[in-house]
């Protein structure tokens, strides 16, 4: 490509314009440096959709840890994820024995009545023995650290829950638009 047809920079940009551009570049460089310095200023939004005992852990562990990094954290709980915030249900989250090939039993056996309860009991025993934090502890920790735990209003009504059923400090009256707004502002967005 020939550059002959383009006017030269000297002809096209006058001194004032050049000075303005230089100032703008300096300004932008400064803001980039500020952003890089501000390691703690990140934001994360997690959408929590699952309500089994095993799937309740990842959102809460990531949320409480991100809060320890001074990140601003929002966890939007929808569908079965809502049970994590439901005071009674969160203490009785269950594990499914079916559909997990890593379970030490074939699906045909795992589907028998009582197998989910057994798998849940085994998991709870392990959690207890390992001194792994309980779901309730992680919720308290997250709230104490300023994590915004949100309960999807549509799901609250769909499941016939009451706003008082949730832990104190849980945000209700929010929907998809709120979640999207937080996701758009976030450095990290996760669907769990």
């Amino acid at each position: 490509m020939s550059t002959d047809s383009h006017p030269s920079i000297d002809e096209d940009v006058d001194a004032t314009e050049l000075q303005e551009l230089r100032e703008r570049v300096a300004e932008l460089e400064e803001s980039v440096a500020d952003a890089a310095d501000d390691a703690g200023g990140k934001k994360m939004t997690i959408i929590a959709t699952k309500g089994t005992l095993d799937m309740a852990y990842p959102p809460l562990i990531l949320a409480s840890t991100a809060a320890a990094f001074d990140w601003e954290v929002v966890v939007f709980h929808t569908f079965w994820g809502l049970d994590i915030l439901h005071e009674d249900n969160s203490r009785n989250l269950k594990l499914s024995a079916v559909g997990n090939p890593n379970m030490p039993m074939p699906n045909a056996l795992a589907a028998l009545p009582g197998m989910d309860a057994m798998a849940t009991k085994m998991m709870r025993k392990k959690i207890d023995e390992n001194d792994t934090a309980t779901i309730e502890e992680l919720i308290d920790l997250s709230l104490a650290q300023g994590v915004d735990l949100q309960a999807c209003q549509m799901t609250i009504e769909l499941m016939d829950y009451d706003e008082d059923d949730f832990y104190d400090g849980v945000t209700t009256g929010v929907g998809a638009a709120t979640a999207l707004q937080h996701m758009a502002e976030s450095d990290v967005q996760l669907l769990i």
Partner: peptide, 12 residues
Amino acid sequence: QSCPMPVVKTKQ
């Protein structure tokens, strides 16, 4: 105590 407690409690 295991993950995430050491980090979270350190921060607190």
